[in-house]
Structures are given as structure tokens and as C-alpha cells.
Measured scan of single mutants.
Amino acid sequence: IDVRFTVNGLDVTVRVRTEEIAERVKELAKNGVDWREIQRIAEELNK
């Protein structure tokens, strides 16, 4: 599942395995978490 969001004007796409992880990623993006941090968290959750 590809999750797309915009952080500080940057369009970011993170690929995740499940809808649940996708929701977590969207939540982080909404809360203004840095995209590199979101990427790292997504990689952890995908394991």
C-alpha cells in the first residue's frame, strides 16, 4: 500500500504492508512528524 502525504511542501510516498500501518503513517504525517522519521518508523513497522 502506498501512502502519500505532504510535509513542509514535500510530497512523500511511503510503501507499507498493511492498512493499519498506513493509518499510523497518516497520523504521524498529520502531527507534523519529520518525513525521515516517518520513513524510519514505517520501515520498522513493515518488518
Rank of each mutant, 00 (worst) to 15 (best):
A42H: 01
R24F: 12
I41D: 01
D11F: 07
R40G: 07
I38A: 01
L10S: 10
A22L: 05
V7N: 10
E20T: 09
V16W: 00
W35N: 03
N8Y: 01
V7W: 06
T13S: 10
V16K: 00
V12K: 05
R15Y: 03
R17Q: 13
F5W: 06
L28K: 02
I41G: 01
N46H: 05
R24H: 12
I41P: 00
I21V: 07
R40F: 09
T6N: 12
A42R: 01
E27T: 09
K30T: 13
T18W: 02
I38L: 08
A22G: 10
K47Q: 14
I21P: 00
I1G: 02
R4G: 11
E43I: 10
T13G: 05
V33H: 09
A22K: 06
E37D: 12
V16T: 05
R40Y: 10
E20D: 13
E20S: 11
R36Y: 12
E43G: 09
V12Y: 13
V33L: 10
R24D: 02
R24Y: 12
F5K: 02
E43S: 11
G9Q: 04
K30G: 09
A29H: 12
V14G: 00
D34N: 09
E27R: 08
A42N: 01
E27C: 06
W35D: 03
D2Q: 05
D11L: 14
A29F: 15
T6F: 06
D11C: 10
V3Q: 01
N46G: 08
L10V: 14
N46V: 03
D2S: 05
I1C: 05
V14F: 04
N8H: 08
E44W: 04
R17A: 15
V33C: 08
D2F: 07
E27P: 00
T6Y: 05
E23V: 14
R40P: 01
D11Q: 13
A42Y: 05
D11E: 15
K26C: 09
I38C: 02
T6L: 13
W35G: 08
R15H: 15
V25K: 00
R36C: 14
E23I: 13
A29W: 14
D11S: 09
A42G: 02
G9Y: 02
V3E: 02
V16P: 00
E37C: 07
V14K: 00
E27F: 04
A29P: 01
R17W: 09
L28M: 12
G32A: 09
R17V: 14
E44K: 08
